[in-house]
Amino acid sequence: MATKAVCVLKGDGPVQGIINFEQKESNGPVKVWGSIKGLTEGLHGFHVHEFGDNTAGCTSAGPHFNPLSRKHGGPKDEERHVGDLGNVTADKDGVADVSIEDSVISLSGDHCIIGRTLVVHEKADDLGKGGNEESTKTGNAGSRLACGVIGIAQ
């Protein structure tokens, strides 16, 4: 089992970053940390998408990683996509320092995120509470600013 993974985020604009993942036990939580720069100040949706395909930019990554066919939600919700990591918060300089621990994603097994795409979005994720159909699919997080395929790390 891989215990570490990394993702280099890039987009068409100024947004870029490096996100690290570490899972010490196969059924334990995954620590997610790193930094994203070039964002507007505020909240930005942060999700693992189904495919590791960036051939047409971030759009070819498909929908959120959702092997259990659930509705979109927040990272602490029972009803959520596996890939729903909530929001990252950018400061006035456009930098989001990421520090998350998640017990639904994994670096092995059915919820493995390796080979899938991590995406940072234009807007805040409403965590499935926006009151419309799009909220239950995407959290109304808007366009995909930057993305990268999650790969095994040393």
Rank of each mutant, 00 (worst) to 15 (best):
Asn54Gln: 13
Leu145Asn: 11
Asn66Arg: 06
Pro29Phe: 14
Val98Pro: 05
Leu39Glu: 03
Asn140Asp: 09
Gly130Gln: 07
Asp125Met: 03
Gly131Lys: 04
Asp91Phe: 15
Thr40Pro: 09
Asp91Ala: 10
Val32Tyr: 08
Asn20Val: 06
Val88His: 13
Glu79Gln: 15
Ser135Gln: 01
Asp77Ser: 14
Ser99Cys: 07
Ile150Trp: 02
Cys7Asp: 00
Gly45Pro: 03
Asn87Ser: 08
Asp110His: 10
Val98His: 03
Thr59Phe: 04
Lys137Asn: 11
Gly142Leu: 10
Lys71Gln: 11
Gly109Cys: 07
Lys123Leu: 11
Ser26Phe: 06
Ala96Ser: 05
Thr3Gln: 06
Thr55Pro: 02
His121Trp: 01
Val6Ala: 11
Ala5Leu: 13
Arg70Cys: 09
Cys58Phe: 15
Val104Leu: 14
Gly38Ile: 07
Leu107Thr: 07
Asn66Leu: 04
Asn66Val: 04
Ile113Phe: 06
Phe65Ile: 03
Gln16Gly: 14
Thr3Met: 06
Ser143Cys: 04
Ser69Val: 15
Leu85Asn: 03
Glu79Thr: 07
Thr136Glu: 11
Ile150Gly: 01
Thr138His: 06
Val48Gln: 00
Ser60Asp: 01
Ala90Phe: 05
Thr117Val: 04
Ile152Arg: 15
Thr138Arg: 07
Leu9Tyr: 14
Gly11Gln: 12
His49Leu: 00
Lys71Tyr: 10
Ala96Arg: 06
Pro75Glu: 10
Leu43Glu: 06
Arg144Ser: 01
Gly130Leu: 06
Thr136Arg: 09
Val104Tyr: 07
Ile114Lys: 08
Gly74Asn: 15
Cys112Ser: 13
Ser106Thr: 13
His44Ala: 10
Gly115His: 01
Ile105Gly: 03
Asn54Ile: 14
Val149Cys: 06
Asp126Lys: 00
Leu39Cys: 07
Glu101Thr: 07
Asp126Gly: 01
Lys92Thr: 08
Asp93Ser: 13
Lys10Asn: 13
Ala5Cys: 11
Gly34Val: 09
Ser60Phe: 02
Asn140Met: 11
Leu107Ile: 11
Glu101Lys: 12
Asp93Glu: 11
Pro14Val: 09
Lys24Tyr: 08
Leu9Val: 12
Leu43Lys: 15
Ser99Met: 06
Pro75Asp: 06
Pro14Thr: 10
Asn20Glu: 15
Ile19Cys: 10
Ala141Arg: 01
Lys24Asp: 15
Ala90Trp: 05
Lys24Thr: 10
Leu85Trp: 05
Arg116Val: 00
Asn87Val: 06
Gln23Phe: 09
Leu107Asn: 06
Thr55Leu: 01
Ser143Tyr: 14
Asn87Thr: 04
Asn27Asp: 15
Gly38Leu: 12
Glu78Tyr: 13
Leu43Cys: 15
His81Gly: 01
Lys137Gln: 05
Lys92Tyr: 12
Trp33Cys: 13
Asp110Glu: 09
Leu118Ile: 11
Ala141Asp: 02
Gln23Asp: 05
Val32Asp: 02
Gly128Lys: 00
Asp93Tyr: 14
Gly11Glu: 15
Glu134Ala: 09
Asp84Phe: 01
Asp110Pro: 07
Val149Trp: 02
Lys31Gly: 15
Gly38His: 06
Gly45Ala: 05
Ala96Met: 03
Val95Cys: 11
Gly62Trp: 01
Asn54Gly: 13
Ile105Ala: 09
Asp125Phe: 02
Ser135Asp: 03
Gly115Arg: 01
Cys58Met: 03
Gly151Arg: 01
Gly94Phe: 10
Leu85Ala: 05
Ile114Ala: 07
Val149Ser: 05
Thr40Phe: 07
Glu134Lys: 04
Gly94Asp: 12
Gly52Asp: 00
Lys4Tyr: 09
Ile36Gly: 01
Thr59Asp: 04
Cys112Trp: 08
Ala5Ser: 13
Val48Tyr: 01
Ala61Thr: 04
Trp33Glu: 12
Gly94Thr: 09
His47Glu: 03
Ser35Met: 10
Val149Arg: 02
Leu9His: 01
Leu127Gly: 08
His64Arg: 01
Asn87Phe: 00
Asp125Pro: 03
Gly115Gln: 01
Asp91Ile: 06
Asp77Gly: 14
Glu50Val: 14
Arg116Gln: 00
Gly139Tyr: 00
Ser108Glu: 12
Cys7Ala: 05
Gly42Asn: 04
His44Asn: 15
Trp33Lys: 15
Ala124Tyr: 14
Glu25Asn: 10
Gly73Cys: 03
